[in-house]
Simulated scan of single mutants.
Amino acid sequence: MTLLTLVAAYFCWTALTIRPLGSWDNDAYAGIVLSCVLTIGAAGAAAMLWLLPPVRRVLRWWWVSPAVLLGVIAVIRWVTGA
């Protein structure tokens, strides 16, 4: 769970720090989208892992909440663009 959260945090950080130079900078926009997709994927994997009954018995909801929050931030970044 911690590893998936760290992966989500790294890619969310890259999505938030990439700044396009202008409307013509398609590579930067593609990097933002890729970072958001990877953040959402890692957050989704953490959430799916937590949904397994043996994992839920051991880990409480607050273990998965940072990853889910990072996923929400990535969705907002993806939707709003730059």
Rank of each mutant, 00 (worst) to 15 (best):
T39Q: 11
V55T: 10
L52S: 07
R56D: 00
V55L: 12
L49V: 00
R60S: 13
V37D: 15
V64P: 03
R56G: 01
L59G: 00
L38P: 11
L52W: 05
A43W: 07
V64M: 10
R60T: 10
L38G: 09
L51K: 05
A28Y: 05
L34S: 15
A46T: 00
M48V: 01
D25M: 02
W63N: 10
L59D: 06
V55C: 04
W63A: 13
A45R: 09
V58R: 14
W63E: 12
V58Y: 11
A45E: 13
G31P: 11
D27H: 09
A30N: 12
W61H: 12
S35N: 13
V58C: 11
V33T: 15
L52V: 01
A45F: 04
S65N: 12
G41K: 10
W61Q: 13
A67P: 13
V58S: 10
A42H: 07
Y29F: 09
L52N: 07
V64K: 04
G41R: 13
W63P: 06
D27I: 02
D27G: 05
A47D: 11
W62V: 05
W63D: 09
A30Q: 14
P54K: 07
A45V: 09
G31Y: 11
D27L: 07
W62C: 07
A42W: 04
G41F: 04
C36F: 02
V33M: 14
Y29P: 01
A43S: 13
G31L: 11
A30R: 15
D25Y: 02
L52M: 06
V55G: 02
L34D: 15
A47W: 04
V58T: 13
Y29H: 09
C36T: 10
R60H: 10
V58H: 11
R57F: 01
L38T: 14
W50A: 00
L34M: 15
P53Y: 04
A42D: 08
A45S: 13
R60K: 14
A67C: 07
A28V: 05
V33Y: 11
C36D: 06
C36M: 07
A30P: 12
S65Y: 08
C36L: 08
C36I: 09
R56W: 00
V33A: 14
L49H: 05
D25V: 03
A28C: 11
P53T: 03
R60E: 10
I40Y: 06
S35Q: 08
A67S: 14
S35A: 14
A28E: 13
V37Q: 14
R56N: 01
L59N: 12
N26Y: 03
C36Q: 13
C36Y: 05
P66N: 03
P66E: 03
I32A: 08
M48T: 06
L38Q: 15
A67G: 10
A42F: 04
P54L: 01
S65R: 12
G31R: 10
P54G: 03
M48A: 04
P66D: 05
A43E: 10
W61P: 15
L49N: 05
